[in-house]
């Protein structure tokens, strides 16, 4: 939140004056405000609904809540400490912690691996490196749902060629969070590599030439030059990855072998009830689960406002 354009050098400001004139006209500002309102109202309506009693919410639209104010915290109470929220399997706090335990490694590890792979594919090219890159790129389109069963079979049967067990079953090894972590990493790789590759490949080539002339090897260029430069890009991709993992339920419930390690999305699904939607609880639950993504977003926001590569190329 703290980062401002004002912190930029004056020269930079001047350069942009011309564009500013065209895009800071009242029409442009009105356009942005309009979009902001359009984008926020549905969410806002849901937020209001989450504070309305069940009967009211079923009777009329959320805007009526302002004409005849009648708000309640009952929905949140039910979600957080009520019977459907907390009594069995450790309650919503436990699933909250599970979500953290699942999401943190499933965000950091794909980032690290993607940085490594993207660097190789962009700058340490070898015969066939483009084919590798575009194969990985194309794999983005493989639907998650089609991969679940083969991966599960891989974990529980290993790989067999004829009677020869090439890779042993990993049923024991994927107890707990392991299966979930590994699966998330697998699905994250194509997009992560594709996006990070975009940043890495846009680094100016003279940096690499200079370093090579100085005698730096492939590895040294990676950790002493590339890694520091792409940090902001990694941070911003990290947010997206974090959001995707945090909001996932399918992978977790396929690879978890016990309800004690399932994330908060599982808890919210349980709340909806066997017979479908309890809108009042669902809206409250949705906001509870949004809390962490929003905090993360605001904490890392400076990378967005200032720019993903702004700090780097100048160096």
């Amino acid at each position: 939140m703290s980062a401002r354009i004002e912190t930029r050098p004056d020269a930079d400001q001047r350069d942009r004056k011309k564009v500013r004139r065209a895009f800071s006209s009242p029409i442009a500002s009105a356009f942005v405000i309009l979009i902001c309102v359009l984008w926020t109202v549905p969410t806002f309506g849901t937020l209001v609904t989450s504070f309305r009693p069940q009967a009211d919410a079923a009777k009329n639209g959320w805007w009526n809540a302002f004409l005849h104010p009648n708000f309640t915290l009952a929905n949140y109470q039910e979600v957080l400490v009520g019977s459907s929220g907390s009594n069995l399997q450790g309650g919503i706090f436990q699933s909250f912690i599970n979500s953290l335990v699942i999401t943190i490694p499933a965000t950091i590890i794909p980032l690290a691996l993607a940085a490594m792979a993207a660097y190789v594919l962009a700058w340490v090219r070898f015969k066939g490196s483009d084919i590798v890159f575009f194969t990985i790129f194309a794999l983005q389109v493989v639907p998650l749902q089609m991969s679940l069963l083969p991966i599960l079979q891989f974990f529980s049967n290993g790989v067999k060629i004829g009677d020869f067990q090439l890779i042993p079953p990993m049923t024991e090894a994927i107890q707990g969070f392991w299966g979930i972590w590994i699966a998330h990493c697998m699905f994250a790789m194509p997009l992560a590599i594709f996006l990070v590759h975009n940043f890495v490949s846009s680094l100016p080539s003279d940096i690499f030439e200079a370093a090579t002339v100085d005698g730096a090897g492939v590895m040294r260029i990676f950790y002493s030059i590339v890694l520091p430069l792409i940090k902001p890009a990694l941070a911003s991709f990290g947010i997206f990855q974090f959001l995707w993992v945090w909001n996932d339920l399918l992978i977790s419930k396929t690879f978890a072998n016990s309800p004690f390690i399932l994330p908060i999305t599982y808890r919210i699904q349980m709340m909806t009830g066997s017979l479908g939607s309890r809108m009042d609880l669902l809206t409250a639950g949705a906001f509870v689960s949004m809390l962490v993504p929003l905090i993360v977003f605001f904490c890392l926001q400076k990378y967005f406002v200032r720019g993903l590569l702004a700090g780097s190329v100048k160096g």
Binding site: L149, L152, Q153, T254
Partner: peptide
């Protein structure tokens, strides 16, 4: 007895059974 409820039970059960878990 540890119970897990799932709103996509009908599609997940075949995956889990075929996947050996």
């Amino acid at each position: 007895i540890v119970y897990t409820g799932d709103n996509s039970f009908e599609s997940q059960l075949p995956i889990r059974a075929q996947g050996g878990t």
